[in-house]
Nucleic acid binder design. Structure first.
Lengths: 138, 138
DNA sequence: GCAAATTTGCAACAACGATGCAATAAATTT
DNA sequence: AAATTTATTGCATCGTTGTTGCAAATTTGC
């Protein structure tokens, strides 16, 4: 586990630091998407807010995690599947936001269906968010 | 036009005030989705920030406008089609965010395709965001 | 183990959004 | 149409979120 985390960081040409290891570890153990606040809460007082922000930024840039669109002015991050590469994300799955537990869940097995756009629109990325009640909450 | 705006407000049991009229008018004349900042910029110094926030909130509650999910921690609002009702939105169309001009466009004619969720998930709302380059930008 | 390159923490700052309360404006009543 | 009730606005204030510059501390490569 320890080794796996180090490998992921090295593969992405990121220095292996304690904060990056801890944050990445938290993503690997978490079941859903995480917000900045979730991470800070989990890490306690060990790191500065700024460090967390910068760590998340670098993870997004390297394609280790991806952003999930929300309507509530919050940013959520989730681990990318292994076939994500810098600049080229393969997170083309549906995200589910539970209105009860507020968790954001990656439905890795649910592909985003294709849609036909009007003439002239060139899509580069499709994202789909479903709101409702998750399995756990009922 | 003046009359149309007043009617919309009255139909939704909202007092007809200058700020609400101006903001609603801006939505009717705008082609894409608007952020709080867009609205403040457009209105100039005429209204307090708080008034704009509260106006947008009440419009969302009444179903006059709806929220659009974004990944950049900003809130965008767009006019609902006429068949929106309080609590029951019919904004089941695709939203397009242009990476060039940064505009968010409602593709009213593009329906969100149905997806089959895993057992136990009860969906209440589907949203789809496509990023890319819009007609205007190329 | 040492020098160069990164990363971290701190301080300060800006933007965004919420709330309580008094002043103002709109809707109702008579 | 004036008076009363009701709803909205503006102001002050506060908290959260996210950014930037810079010196101190770590990591990396040798």
């Amino acid at each position: 586990m320890e080794q796996k985390i180090t490998n992921i960081l090295k593969q992405n040409r990121l220095s292996v630091t304690v904060s990056r290891q801890k944050i990445l570890n938290f993503f690997l153990s978490a079941d859903g998407a995480l917000s900045h606040a979730d991470i800070e809460k989990n890490l306690g007082e060990s790191f500065d807010r700024v460090t967390v922000y910068r760590t998340l930024q670098s993870f997004v840039e390297k394609g280790i995690i991806h952003l999930i669109p929300t309507t509530d002015n919050s940013i959520k991050y989730a681990l990318c599947k292994s076939d994500c590469a810098p600049g080229h994300h393969h997170d083309e799955h549906v995200h589910f936001i539970c209105g009860e537990c507020e968790k954001t869940i990656c439905l890795d097995d649910v592909d985003i269906p294709l849609v036909k756009l009007p003439k002239g629109f060139t899509p580069s990325r499709f994202q789909m968010v479903v709101t409702g009640i998750c399995v756990e909450c009922k």
